[in-house]
């Protein structure tokens, strides 16, 4: 245990927050999260359709204008609906999507826990 603690301390001490990603990486991150409306199974990042090429340009322009990631998402949702985001936002339509798997996890945990308690 001591060794474990020792290493943990080293790691925490040496830890630093990563430098902010540059614009280019941010653009990639955003376009990977956008779904292309022309070839509807690809992300904008992966797609080479005219629409995707223009959308990449729009995203990069918006970043240069100083918009944040969320602002860009909201801008695009306003234009194209929630569908365009690969990462579904938290709202009344998606609570179940996000929480159901976690509830199932907790449910499974309780069953196993009960079984183990009974063994004791």
């Amino acid at each position: 245990m001591k060794i474990l603690k020792f290493f943990l301390i080293i790691i925490i001490v040496f830890y630093f927050t990563p430098s902010n990603a540059n614009d280019y990486e941010l653009e990639n991150k955003i376009t990977k999260n956008l779904r292309c409306l022309v070839c509807q199974g690809q992300s904008v990042y992966d797609s080479d359709s005219e629409f995707a090429i223009s959308l990449k340009l729009v995203v990069s322009n918006k970043i240069k204008e100083g918009l944040s990631e969320d602002q860009i998402y909201n801008f695009l949702i306003e234009k194209y609906g929630d569908w365009i985001l690969y990462d579904p936002q938290f709202n009344k339509y998606t609570y179940l999507l996000w929480f159901l798997p976690l509830l199932i996890f907790l449910f499974g945990g309780t069953i196993i826990f009960k079984k183990l308690i009974r063994l004791k």
């Binding site: 005219e50 223009s54 729009v58």
Partner: peptide, 13 residues
């Protein structure tokens, strides 16, 4: 010229 205005309009093709 670059298709960005069409996106402002919410068009995709």
């Amino acid at each position: 010229e670059d298709g960005t205005k069409a996106i402002e309009w919410g068009a995709f093709g």
